[in-house]
Simulated assay, not measured.
Amino acid sequence: MRAVGFTSPGGPEALRVMDVPRPAPGPGQVLVEVAYAGVNFAEVYRRRGWARTNGEAVVPGLEVSGTVAGWGAGVDGLSVGDPVAALTHDQAGASGGYAQFAVAPEELVYPLRTPAGEVDLLAAAALPCTVTTAYGLLAAGRLAPGEDVLIHAALGGVGGTAARVARLLGARRVLGTVGTAAKLDRPEAALYDRLYLREDLDGWARPDGPDGGFDLILDSIAGPTTEASLRALRTLGRVVVYGNPGGHGDTRLSAQELWLSSRAVVGYNLGEIAVRAPHLLREQALAAAGLLADRRLTVDIGEVLPLEAAWEAHRLLESGASVGKLVLRLAN
């Protein structure tokens, strides 16, 4: 089958079109014919060297949408041709989503036909990872109605979705930061009550600043941003950390300071949850599918690129220039 992958770590140029065997679903697994594959920073990490290749082909891709093409022993309740989205978190070798076919555990395969209607396959490409991450971050951060939320990387796929979910959950105000001044004037900025340039620490990171601190901050940037975020919290405020795209060194936190300031830091890793508590992801994904179907929730789809341009999607993601969800198209 046609796929995009790499045989040794490197930059975006390490990704290339290749022909690999079609994966066979094992017990409890579902084979999906891929229509669209979402692009996520976790796949950038794998390409940079998190995946051990041993010279063999690695096909990345955490989330796909498409149709059921088969299944392994122990799977029931599905029919060939059913529209689904799937989280392929346990990918190994050539089983990731940047390919014509991918496999995923049955519990992490989500039907797109809901009581509210059917989710569009393009939007559904963001459901297994981006949308469930947005839900999970706000759940991990214990967002309560009436609280103020700050979201770093505000115009990315997770950021924009989290902002919409936060409003559905009753947030009083939703604010955000971006890495470049050009993004402040993007139409998508209207989603936020206020948007800051991230380096403008006097704007957002001072508890005595114009916004008076925040109850919850979603931090995918790490390093100095995490340290500034802690200072920007109100009493009983929380920072949820879930990424480190710049490869910053570890942030040193003082348990004594957290205790004395009544603030908290929470970690969120979708892959870990997929292994240890997949039922939580399924509950969130199915709830989100209903919201997507009746359009109470939308996802900002940025660029939709052909599969062979996966390297360009990675370049855009790493550069910080992308807005919205990046998606690879395999459907005709």
Rank of each mutant, 00 (worst) to 15 (best):
G160K: 01
G246R: 12
V34P: 13
R206W: 04
F214C: 06
L317K: 06
V20R: 09
T88G: 06
R167N: 04
A313W: 09
L270H: 13
D19S: 14
V119I: 04
A309N: 05
G117N: 06
P12H: 10
S8G: 12
I273E: 07
E312P: 00
A116I: 02
A154I: 05
R295Q: 09
V39T: 09
H279P: 02
G271F: 12
L305Q: 01
R172E: 11
D208R: 14
E303R: 15
G5F: 04
Y192V: 04
A14W: 06
T226F: 02
Y192C: 06
E33N: 11
T114I: 11
G212N: 07
V149Q: 08
A51R: 14
N40L: 01
E106K: 13
S229T: 00
S8K: 15
V158H: 02
Y36C: 04
V327A: 02
L78Y: 13
A285V: 08
F41T: 03
Y268T: 04
L191N: 00
P115M: 08
L169S: 09
A94I: 07
L260E: 14
G70H: 05
T67W: 08
G117F: 04
N244I: 08
L291K: 01
G179P: 00
H152T: 02
V84M: 05
G146E: 05
Q91T: 00
E199K: 12
N40C: 11
P25Q: 02
T161H: 01
G55M: 04
V323W: 10
L233A: 05
L138I: 07
E107I: 15
D82A: 10
A264E: 12
E283D: 07
G93A: 03
A274K: 14
R48S: 11
L137M: 10
E283S: 13
A264Q: 15
N40M: 02
V64Y: 00
T67P: 03
V304I: 10
D250P: 00
N54Q: 14
N244K: 05
D211K: 12
A124F: 09
T298G: 09
L233R: 14
R329S: 15
A144W: 01
E283P: 07
G97D: 02
T235F: 13
A35W: 07
E107F: 12
D215N: 14
D200T: 03
G10E: 07
V149F: 08
G141Q: 09
A37T: 04
R164M: 10
L216R: 14
G290K: 02
R172D: 03
L121T: 03
G237F: 11
A162V: 01
H89Q: 08
V265F: 04
R167L: 09
L121G: 07
A57R: 10
V149I: 06
E303M: 09
G28Y: 06
G203T: 04
G246Q: 11
E43L: 01
P25K: 04
V103Q: 06
D120Y: 10
L236M: 10
N244Y: 11
E147Y: 03
G55Y: 08
V275Q: 15
A57T: 06
A190I: 08
R47F: 11
A181S: 13
E147A: 12
A205S: 14
G320Q: 10
V59F: 09
G237A: 12
L15I: 07
V275F: 09
L195V: 10
G72C: 05
G290W: 00
L218G: 01
R263E: 11
G209Y: 09
E312N: 03
G237M: 06
G223D: 12
